[in-house]
Amino acid sequence: MAQERRFVALSDPHLILHLSLSMLGAAYTESDDDDATKEDDDFVFEIDPTVLVDTRKLIIDEPIAEGLNSIVYKGWYEFNPVSIKVVLPMQTSNASSACKAKFQREVNLISRIKHQNIVKFIGASVEPRMMIITELLEGCSLPKYLESIYPNTLSLEQSISFALDISQAMEYLHANGIIHRDLKPGNLLLRNDKMQILLTNFETAREEISGEMTSEAGTYRYMAPELFSKDPLSKGEKKCYDHRVDIHSFAMAMWAIIKNQTPFKGRCDLLAAYATAKNMRPSLEGFPEVLLPLMQSCWEEDPNLRPEFSEITQILEKLLHHSTSISPEIEECPITSVEEPIPNYVEDKSEHVDEAQSLNTSVCIEGQSEIITVEAQTKPKKTPKKCKGLLFFSKCFHIC
């Protein structure tokens, strides 16, 4: 059969290992995990048996995405199309205790999440390899869709609708005590009709606890400033922050979606982090005025000034409802910016590179060995006040 499709049953470890490694290339050699595999083998998974799948009913096809710690395949479970995330290393017996614990935490979190804007969890497997099975979306990733329409941008109505989908998903997570910690366009998927956003990838998600938490999570361009430190921190050292780091990431993701651009484009990851640490934000030139107060309040440097997702959802619902007649509404509603406007980030200006290289005080980027420098500039501090722009905006749309 000329069009015969190649299937591999996951119950055959030798076949799947051969297939996967042949596709990965040198980037995922066993040497990458040599140190990890030498750790103790006493880890015992504590995962509800009801969420574990029968791997004999699981079929894998071609890979559809690859990451540093996993490969995602298209596949079938009980003859239904699914997405199969295979955690590296390919064999559970070769994984470190830390890797197993991280996988266990992800499974235990995502297995209790059920929301229309979050990818549906189907099941997991711990042997012979660690896998997470979720629904397969026939659409595409949000970045891929935005790339397909570039240099055009989404309509304002569509942008607000997507932002609302994300906000509702995040509101649900926060209400259940879960922080995502890596909210960005790359972790957003579209259904086939390109009309609905679904949140995915809970690899770095965790339950929120009071006190200090590890801060080795997130993506530089979307991370909140409180995840950075002016003093070097050793890997794994604890840091104080809470669920409001997701609100900053939401603002950065919303900017990227509406502008159809990458935040701090043209800058390496470290300089993107440097910009955030210096209280810079992407330029708001040409940004829809109706969303300015919300945007500026969400990426406030002070987490206490950021709105909760329950408030954000209300605002976006009102905006979407009024989107057909949004201009007349806004003309009657004065819009003010935040109390102390955050300086716009100017792209492709070499002075930021020179400045980053010449300043003296260290800034440590969590989870990385590289250190960039930032000069501690003393400025008179003002008493924090709630964002006026967001309050005026809420009153204009009668949001309580």
Rank of each mutant, 00 (worst) to 15 (best):
L17Q: 06
G236M: 03
F392W: 04
D48P: 06
S125R: 03
E340V: 11
P143Q: 07
L68Y: 09
L154M: 11
L142F: 09
E138Y: 12
I133F: 14
E212H: 07
E355G: 03
V72H: 06
G177Y: 00
K265T: 03
E301I: 11
V107D: 04
I122D: 05
E66V: 10
P63H: 12
I64Y: 07
P380N: 09
R191P: 00
E135T: 11
A163M: 14
F43K: 11
K265M: 00
F287Y: 15
T200P: 07
G75F: 08
D48F: 03
L292V: 15
C240G: 07
R56K: 12
D269M: 13
S358C: 07
P303N: 05
R5N: 01
P380G: 05
W76T: 12
P128A: 10
A26N: 14
S327K: 12
T50H: 05
S148Q: 10
E66G: 08
A217C: 14
T373A: 00
Q357N: 09
L154P: 09
S394L: 03
Y145W: 05
G236W: 05
Q357G: 00
S310E: 11
F121R: 12
T262I: 15
S167R: 03
N152L: 12
E62C: 03
K278S: 14
S20L: 04
N201P: 03
N279D: 09
E311P: 00
F103P: 07
L316R: 08
K194A: 02
E135R: 07
H321Y: 09
H14W: 02
N152V: 00
E207V: 04
Y73C: 14
E226P: 06
V86F: 08
C387S: 15
K349R: 11
M195A: 14
F250N: 08
S97C: 10
R244A: 07
E127D: 15
T204D: 13
D231L: 13
H321F: 11
S327Q: 11
S159V: 02
N108D: 12
A205H: 10
E226R: 08
K259W: 02
N360M: 01
P143D: 11
L271K: 01
F228Q: 07
E289W: 01
A95W: 01
I122W: 10
R191I: 12
S337F: 09
L391R: 14
A27F: 03
R206D: 05
E311L: 05
A9Q: 04
P282V: 11
L359A: 02
C99N: 12
L292W: 01
I315L: 13
E317C: 03
E340I: 12
Q368R: 11
S148Y: 02
A273P: 04
E212W: 00
L136A: 14
D302G: 03
A124K: 08
S283K: 10
C298G: 01
K259Y: 11
P185G: 08
C298W: 05
Y77V: 04
C396M: 04
I59G: 03
A253D: 10
E332K: 15
M295R: 01
N360Q: 01
R191W: 02
E347V: 06
N304I: 06
G367Q: 04
S369T: 13
D33S: 09
V87E: 08
S210E: 13
S125H: 06
M1P: 02
E370C: 01
S125C: 15
P288D: 02
